[in-house]
Amino acid sequence: MSAVESVLKKHPGAGRDALIPILQEVQEDEGYLSREAIAEIGKHLGIPTAKIYGVATFYNQFRFQPKGKYHFMVCRGTACHVKGSNRVLETAEKELGLKPGQTSRDRLFSLEVVACMGACGLSPVMNLNGEFYAKVTPQKLVKIIQECRETEGGDGR
């Protein structure tokens, strides 16, 4: 049974109001919302796929590409913004060659923007695979990415 099927099985006879919990559970299991998943959820709930895509894109929490091995979450909350998180994000986009929500073709890297991580005292803050990085600067970020690449056997480029 696919992950989507087992999630849907937990919601028999569900209606429109179950959409967001189902999307969350599917993403929890699969790491993202695939086209196939959205089509299947649509059939189960009787909701057109365009509507589901509309709802899902409204919220920052949903991804439409699988997470990379190194998943970067850059905080763009108010405190981080004041401390220059826009430059951190710019650097991440440039160094990784990704826009927020995207995953690199080799599935090594993915980038996500979050509104606030609740760690304003450490701002600007970033999270890589669950680990927090405090007072991130563009220089620090470049180094972190380089280290990831070196671990993967690349030359850091």
Partner: peptide
């Protein structure tokens, strides 16, 4: 349907 949110909203098709 409406895709995205706020000033970045646009009308789009599924995916």
């Amino acid at each position: 349907d409406f895709v995205g949110r706020g000033c970045k909203t646009y009308i789009g098709t599924t995916f």
